[in-house]
Design a binder for these strands. Structure first.
Length: 345
DNA sequence: AATACGGGGTT
DNA sequence: AACCCAGTATT
């Protein structure tokens, strides 16, 4: 049986969909997987240069599995949600151990890999193998919330369950890769969050939101909440040769395992640490940097300190290192810290 | 069921 | 300045 939704969407896709995304040529399971992970909560235009750089450095799954963790994080640096990079790396190694160096062609085996949930597993199977699985990303949620007039924030399990059922109900029996891509292309180009272009939409005749003039209020917005503010103090320490002291962040929490500046909750803690570090020739407070996360707003107070000696008592190790300006490009560094280090003379 | 997890784009 | 984006893992 042919679903009008799927039929019309596929016809539209052939004429107006995106057929030139980098992960579509060639469309291998590895490249599909990598793109799906990078695209989690991240816009296509942002992902493209990262994807190109990543596959140039690590062109296949065994290369990724064999790469040092720091290289993977460096390739990810600036994309955010760094657990994605660590999970990707771990999953690649598991594929080498368990699946002969390939991504498994099996829903449950994909789901068992770190970083792959229900939607990404479906996306990989549909895109790489034309298997009949639904996805439910932001685009698909928006499409079906509007098409069927579903009220309620899609973040709640009740609404999400309804949307999964609709996504499955509209699945065609062929062209699953194209159907998957078509939903995302429609959501990205016509059925956009703001000002959807309904007159050009192949589905508007059957769309509940269009018929009832509710495209502006569907899908229902997330309930608003005020963000807490947090403060942190960092020390930008330079030796006489201009090398910068970096410390590895703890393995969990914000910026897990990335290289950042020594960081303290209070200026008193910072000063205690500084006093223990030997001869400081000079120190200057720099302007605070504001950085907004999903769940809080962080004010970073940098102190720039210059050492009168060539190097400190501490030597390079796995959690602490003196980096030259050139080294910064090869390391995984949080975006605001990188901006600070690279924008200040 | 709620929260943690980045960074950038859009309006 | 909100709000959102090709979500997943943890609690």
């Amino acid at each position: 049986m042919s679903d009008r939704f799927a039929t019309r969407l596929l016809t539209w896709f052939d004429a107006h969909g995106r057929h030139d995304l980098p992960w579509q040529h060639p469309r291998t399971p590895y490249r599909v997987w990598l793109s799906e992970i990078m695209l989690q909560q991240t816009q296509v235009s942002v992902v493209i240069p990262y994807f190109q750089r990543f596959v140039a450095a690590l062109p296949d799954l065994p290369a990724l599995a064999a790469a040092p963790r720091d290289q993977v994080l460096a390739l990810w640096s600036g994309l955010g949600y760094y657990a994605r990079a660590r999970n990707l790396h771990t999953a690649a190694q598991r594929c080498v151990e368990l699946h002969d160096g390939d991504l498994p062609h099996d829903f449950d085996a994909l789901l068992a890999l770190p970083g792959i949930g229900r939607s990404t597993a479906g996306a990989i199977l549909a895109q790489a193998w034309d298997d009949r699985f639904a996805i439910l990303d932001g685009n698909v949620k928006r499409l079906f919330a509007r098409f069927h007039g579903i009220e309620g924030w899609p973040g709640t399990p009740i609404i999400e369950k309804q949307l999964w059922e609709l996504a499955n109900a509209h699945l065609p029996h062929s062209r699953l890769a194209d159907f998957t891509q078509a939903q995302m292309d429609l959501g990205a180009t016509l059925c956009t969050r703001a000002n959807p272009d309904c007159t050009r939409c192949p589905l508007h005749e059957d769309c509940v939101a269009f018929a009832s003039d509710r495209t502006a209020t569907l899908p229902t917005r997330r309930p608003g909440k005020t963000k807490p503010e947090r403060e942190t103090h960092v020390v930008w320490m330079e030796d006489r040769d201009g090398r910068i002291l970096l410390q590895r962040r703890p393995p969990t929490g914000v910026w897990a395992s990335l290289w950042a500046l020594p960081q303290f909750d209070t200026s008193a803690d910072r000063d205690d640490w500084l006093a223990s570090q030997g001869c400081i020739a000079s120190s200057t407070e720099l302007d605070a940097i504001e950085h907004v996360f999903t769940h809080f707003r962080l004010h970073i107070h940098p102190l720039r300190a210059r050492l009168s000696t060539a190097r400190m008592r501490v030597s390079d190790n796995d959690d602490q290192r003196w980096a030259t300006r050139d080294d910064l490009a090869t390391l995984g560094i949080p975006a605001p810290i990188r901006r600070l280090l690279e924008s200040t003379p």
